[in-house]
Amino acid sequence: MEEHLAVMHEKLRHELPNFFLKIPDYGLYSQDVEFINHLLHLHTRGRPMYQLAVALCKALAWGYFASLRLEVLALTRHPEDWSVRARWRLTGVPLHLLLLCFYRRDKRQLLRSYDAFSTFFLNSQGLIRCHRVDKLMPAPTAVPEAKKLLVAAAVAVAVADPAPALRLLLRPEATSGDT
């Protein structure tokens, strides 16, 4: 079983980075593969249904992102439960932002990333018997230096001039001779 785990780890290391660019090798999966996708609340059993579910996930991802890229952040073997776990990141420009900001030359500020976690459980033949996808969450994005400077300047102005808006609303106090 250790050998099956090592072989599957190596195959997934080559297969996963191109997941959205080419058709996956469905020979790595057993005929009764179970797909549990907690993101879309999707649960299928059998290779044909798995292929359909993967095609649906790809279509949704390409429908949301332009220039989609999958990056494998970590790929580890776990002999205690005969699984290979992958932490990965989807990166791309959402189509709605691309349509709204088509005039920008530098589209790097429009990039969005989402991190997720997949677990591939193996059967006794060394094929994937279950693929589980968990926790898709936005990846932390680095704030550009110009924005940091702008925020720092806004904070400095707010601290230096307390309650500037209140001065506009308050009337000057009446003099003591107006009684």
Rank of each mutant, 00 (worst) to 15 (best):
M1A: 05
E2K: 11
E2L: 08
E3C: 00
H4E: 00
H4C: 02
L5R: 05
A6S: 13
V7K: 13
K11Q: 12
H14Q: 14
P17S: 07
N18C: 03
F19D: 06
F20V: 09
F20M: 14
L21I: 03
L21F: 09
L28C: 02
Q31I: 01
Q31A: 13
D32M: 10
D32W: 08
E34V: 14
I36C: 01
I36Q: 01
H38V: 00
L39T: 08
L40Q: 03
H41F: 01
H41L: 00
H41W: 00
H41R: 04
P48T: 07
Y50C: 08
A53P: 03
V54K: 09
C57A: 10
K58D: 05
A59W: 09
L60D: 02
W62A: 04
Y64I: 07
Y64C: 08
F65H: 13
F65Q: 12
F65M: 13
F65E: 10
A66W: 15
L70K: 15
L73W: 07
L75Q: 10
T76R: 13
P79W: 01
E80V: 01
D81Q: 03
D81S: 03
W82M: 10
V84P: 04
V84H: 04
R89P: 04
L90G: 12
T91G: 15
T91Q: 15
P94G: 09
H96C: 08
L97M: 09
L97T: 05
L98Q: 13
L98I: 04
L100E: 10
C101H: 15
C101D: 06
F102I: 05
Y103H: 15
R105H: 11
R105N: 09
R105Y: 08
D106I: 06
D106L: 09
R108F: 11
R108W: 12
Q109P: 10
S113N: 09
S113C: 13
Y114W: 14
D115P: 05
A116G: 15
F117C: 11
F120C: 01
N123W: 04
S124Y: 06
L127K: 15
I128K: 02
H131T: 02
H131I: 01
V133H: 02
V133N: 04
P140V: 06
T141E: 12
A142V: 14
V143H: 03
V143C: 11
E145L: 15
A146G: 15
K147W: 13
K147L: 14
K147A: 14
K148E: 12
K148H: 14
A154E: 10
A154L: 13
D161K: 08
P164N: 02
L166Y: 04
L166T: 08
R167S: 09
R167P: 00
L168I: 02
L168G: 11
L170F: 07
L170E: 08
R171H: 12
R171L: 07
T175D: 09
G177V: 11
D178I: 12
